[in-house]
């Protein structure tokens, strides 16, 4: 394709990204820097601030029987609710990728099943710095140390995501770069069980060209950025595999834990 077409594709992906995702990297960085004019996020760093935060932060969903459940389970349930929301947002974004909805419907399902968590962990990096992460659409900031202080196995959930995020954030991507990158991730033609790989690879190929051009324009001083970013796709698969293993452990050891049906569908026979 001509470079004008590739720029139009990049612009389109950036627009659908802004439409599909309520919190962007730019917004998140502005909140963390205290530059939004809104209230600064409520910091959760121990059990007392967690209790205060739970009263102060307006969560989108309040799970039932919350009061009596253990802290770790409550936090985990909120992560689940947010993940389900994210799957819905990512689905909307995927549908906006030119050609995606014309793929075999079963292949669309497979691409989402394998892609959503890689997208979630890429985008989670935008909400993180080395000390913690923004929660509840920027109303709160939960510290990394607090998450590490939770009891086993819950203390092991977020730490690998922070480690990945620090490396990923080091690439200095902007929201437009990320938008095109996650489209590339979704359109991976090597997911298990795909029926018709060729049209997926063709779609991914034009998005890859759009990404290469976008990075060249927005980061002229980092000629290796495209290659470095593609390497991150391997790290993402590793993180998802470990995440799935950890969830299996949690499901076995935590009798109180229930897994949302949508997440059950995604995790079932994943890796």
């Amino acid at each position: 394709p001509e470079s004008a077409d590739l720029r139009a594709l990049a612009k389109h992906m950036f627009e659908s990204y802004n439409k599909a995702f309520p919190i962007t990297k730019a917004k998140s960085r502005a909140i963390m820097a205290g530059k939004t004019g809104d209230k600064s996020p409520f910091v959760i760093y121990d059990m007392n601030s967690l209790k205060a935060g739970e009263e102060r932060i307006k969560f989108k969903q309040t799970p039932l029987q919350e009061q009596n459940t253990e802290v770790e389970i409550r936090i985990f349930q909120r992560c689940q609710f947010r993940s389900v929301e994210a799957v819905r947002e990512i689905t909307e974004f995927a549908k906006s990728i030119p050609g995606f909805i014309n793929l075999d419907l079963n292949d669309q399902v497979t691409l989402l099943k394998y892609g959503v968590h890689e997208v979630i962990f890429s985008m989670l990096a935008s909400l993180m710095n080395k000390d913690g992460l923004l929660i509840a659409a920027g109303q709160g900031f939960m510290t990394r140390e607090f998450l590490k202080s939770l009891r086993k196995p819950f203390c092991d959930i977020m730490e690998p995501k922070f480690e990945f995020a620090m490396k990923f954030n080091g690439l200095g991507l902007n929201d437009c770069d990320i938008a095109i990158f996650i489209a590339v991730v979704i359109l991976s033609g090597d997911r298990p069980g795909l029926i018709n790989v060729k049209p997926i690879e063709e779609l991914q190929d034009s998005i890859l060209q759009a990404l290469a051009l976008q990075l060249k324009i927005s980061h002229p001083d980092s000629p290796q950025l495209f290659a470095k970013l593609l390497q991150k796709m391997t790290d993402l698969r590793q993180i998802v595999t470990e995440h799935v293993q950890l969830l299996h452990t949690i499901r076995k050891t935590e009798a109180e834990m229930s897994l949302h049906p949508l997440l059950q569908e995604i995790y079932k026979d994943l890796y």
Binding site: Q61, R88, T91, L112, H260, L262, K268
Partner: peptide, 20 residues
């Protein structure tokens, strides 16, 4: 198809509730 019925539904109509 049965195995992924919520994903199917989201793909066809993402405005339908997911029963959070």
């Amino acid at each position: 198809k049965e195995k992924h019925k919520i994903l199917h539904r989201l793909l066809q109509d993402s405005t339908s509730p997911v029963d959070l």
